[in-house]
């Protein structure tokens, strides 16, 4: 009888531990979920910021490319050449000699174009 009373007042350790463990696991999972969720939001914001930065860089690159294209276009370069090259004396066409050896079909070897222009100097 005494033993029965004693055993009836005892706490059942196993279920409590189980319940506490379950609660801890559930709370941990929930907290982890919240943590992950917040991290996702933060990473999303970082992603957005990087996207904006990338878009800005891309746009700046495109702007630079278009500026480069305009500054190196033929009309601009020709105008610039006319400005800085006005003192240059153009080479007469008849003094131009092709440096590529002239090769005719069926003929091999190097053929001299002319040495006269050089001999005269």
């Amino acid at each position: 009888m005494k033993n029965c009373r004693r055993s009836g007042g005892q706490l059942q350790g196993g279920p409590i531990v189980t319940i506490v463990l379950c609660a801890v696991v559930i709370v941990s999972v929930a907290l982890y979920f919240v943590h992950i969720h917040i991290q996702m939001l933060e990473l999303g914001n970082v992603k957005k910021r990087l996207e904006i930065e990338l878009a800005g860089i891309t746009k700046a690159l495109q702007a630079a490319e278009s500026r480069y294209a305009e500054l190196t276009s033929r009309p601009v370069l020709e105008r610039r050449l006319a400005e800085i090259g006005s003192d240059l004396i153009p080479i007469p066409e008849e003094r131009l000699v092709s440096l590529d050896p002239t090769r005719f079909p069926g003929e091999e070897g190097v053929r001299t174009v002319s040495n006269r222009g050089f001999a005269a100097k």
Binding site: R95, L96, V97, P105, V113, S114, R116, G117, A120
Partner: peptide, 13 residues
């Protein structure tokens, strides 16, 4: 390349 039958380009002094 100049034509074989034609005169060869020369640089005049």
């Amino acid at each position: 390349q100049p034509s074989p039958a034609g005169p060869i380009a020369t640089a005049q002094p």
